[in-house]
Simulated assay, not measured.
Amino acid sequence: MNALAARRRHPAAIALLILLGLVVTGLAYSAFAPKPASAATASADQVQQGKKLFLANCATCHGLQAQGTKAGPSLAGVGAAAVDFQVGTGRMPMAAPNVQAPRAVVRFKQDEISAMAAYVASLAPGPAVPDAQYSSGEGGDVAKGAQLFRVNCAMCHNFAGSGGALTRGKYAPSLRNVEGKHIYEAMVTGPQSMPVFNDQNISPESKNDIVAYLHAVDKEENVGGMNLGNLGPVSEGLFAWVFGLGIMVAFAVWLGKKAA
């Protein structure tokens, strides 16, 4: 017993316990931490094809090595998801410098977009294009997604995803009828003025719940009369002023003529 007690009081015992605790914590985190919703690794041929497309269509603004210029930011570390979102929604290449890149006609085929995304992803680690399991909305919890959306997104995009105005000419775009993959990619890359919601902020499963909610909003018919763009009190107040007061003024004029 004395020998066992002496070993417990040995100075190295504390360091050994700390080391053991760190190992156990690391193993537990690797087992239970949210897994990134990453897609398959790109091939070398796809990366080379993407580099050629990048040099022909993107290097003017982003530099020959994607290092960035005065006309466009560096793309190192933005990941394949940023390219798939920006090019896949027609926001890039931009027709002209502007406060914000609007959604436009997509100029490339999906295999070309994937190749450019693979090239940019090869430059530095970054968010990957998500698997359909986490971005299609299939199997998602619509009620949970609605709650997450109201807490994290509705202040800019409106409770129904109809979009809204921001400062200095910028705006939060409408999320109506947007592909789930692009919604997920926007969350993990933070385009324009949008903050980044990585997997530690919102897990891939929860992102899928948000996509499920937005797709459910797209499918639902309005049961409360005219939706007025789902823009809330602004459009509702305008409707009341234009039509409500208009009817009241017309009624007052009619009463005046009748009294005369």
Results as ranks from 00 to 15, higher is better:
residue 37 A to L: 01
residue 45 D to C: 02
residue 109 K to T: 12
residue 75 L to T: 01
residue 239 F to P: 00
residue 145 G to L: 04
residue 212 A to M: 13
residue 23 V to T: 14
residue 197 F to E: 07
residue 110 Q to Y: 03
residue 109 K to G: 11
residue 105 V to P: 00
residue 198 N to R: 01
residue 101 A to R: 07
residue 63 G to T: 01
residue 229 G to I: 15
residue 170 K to R: 15
residue 48 Q to H: 05
residue 37 A to H: 03
residue 231 L to Y: 07
residue 240 A to Q: 13
residue 251 F to V: 11
residue 184 Y to L: 02
residue 39 A to G: 15
residue 124 A to T: 07
residue 59 A to S: 13
residue 130 P to T: 04
residue 142 V to Q: 07
residue 212 A to Q: 10
residue 129 V to E: 04
residue 209 D to G: 07
residue 147 Q to L: 04
residue 38 S to M: 01
residue 157 H to P: 06
residue 243 F to H: 11
residue 165 A to W: 06
residue 184 Y to N: 06
residue 173 P to E: 04
residue 258 K to I: 06
residue 130 P to W: 01
residue 246 G to H: 09
residue 135 S to M: 05
residue 77 G to V: 02
residue 181 K to F: 04
residue 24 V to W: 10
residue 228 L to N: 07
residue 147 Q to N: 13
residue 208 N to T: 05
residue 81 A to P: 08
residue 226 M to L: 12
residue 87 V to N: 05
residue 170 K to P: 00
residue 208 N to M: 13
residue 236 E to C: 08
residue 109 K to W: 04
residue 44 A to I: 09
residue 94 M to C: 02
residue 68 G to R: 05
residue 121 A to L: 03
residue 14 I to F: 15
residue 123 L to S: 09
residue 115 A to F: 02
residue 89 T to G: 02
residue 188 V to A: 09
residue 234 V to M: 15
residue 134 Y to K: 04
residue 258 K to H: 06
residue 107 R to L: 15
residue 138 E to D: 15
residue 111 D to V: 13
residue 11 P to N: 06
residue 121 A to G: 09
residue 65 Q to R: 13
residue 134 Y to L: 03
residue 218 D to M: 06
residue 228 L to E: 03
residue 220 E to T: 15
residue 53 L to C: 12
residue 199 D to P: 02
residue 112 E to F: 10
residue 42 A to W: 04
residue 111 D to Q: 08
residue 91 R to K: 15
residue 187 M to I: 11
residue 253 V to C: 14
residue 89 T to K: 00
residue 223 V to E: 15
residue 19 L to V: 13
residue 232 G to F: 03
residue 240 A to S: 07
residue 227 N to W: 14
residue 1 M to I: 12
residue 14 I to K: 07
residue 193 S to P: 05
residue 245 L to T: 14
residue 90 G to T: 03
residue 217 V to W: 04
residue 233 P to A: 10
residue 242 V to T: 15
residue 208 N to E: 05
residue 233 P to C: 07
residue 133 Q to K: 14
residue 42 A to N: 03
residue 210 I to H: 00
residue 235 S to R: 08
residue 247 I to V: 14
residue 161 G to F: 06
residue 31 A to W: 10
residue 210 I to W: 00
residue 149 F to M: 11
residue 36 P to S: 14
residue 41 T to H: 10
residue 111 D to Y: 06
residue 78 V to W: 02
residue 158 N to E: 09
residue 39 A to R: 10
residue 167 T to C: 00
residue 118 A to G: 02
residue 172 A to I: 02
residue 131 D to P: 02
residue 118 A to C: 07
residue 212 A to P: 10
residue 167 T to N: 05
residue 158 N to A: 08
residue 204 P to I: 00
residue 145 G to D: 00
residue 84 D to R: 14
residue 32 F to T: 14
residue 100 Q to A: 14
residue 76 A to E: 08
residue 135 S to W: 03
residue 47 V to F: 08
residue 206 S to R: 09
residue 230 N to I: 01
residue 167 T to R: 13
residue 69 T to L: 03
residue 73 P to Q: 02
residue 175 L to C: 00
residue 131 D to R: 12
residue 253 V to Q: 09
residue 255 L to T: 06
residue 108 F to C: 01
residue 101 A to T: 10
residue 190 G to S: 12
residue 143 A to Q: 14
residue 171 Y to N: 12
residue 34 P to T: 00
residue 135 S to R: 04
residue 215 H to F: 00
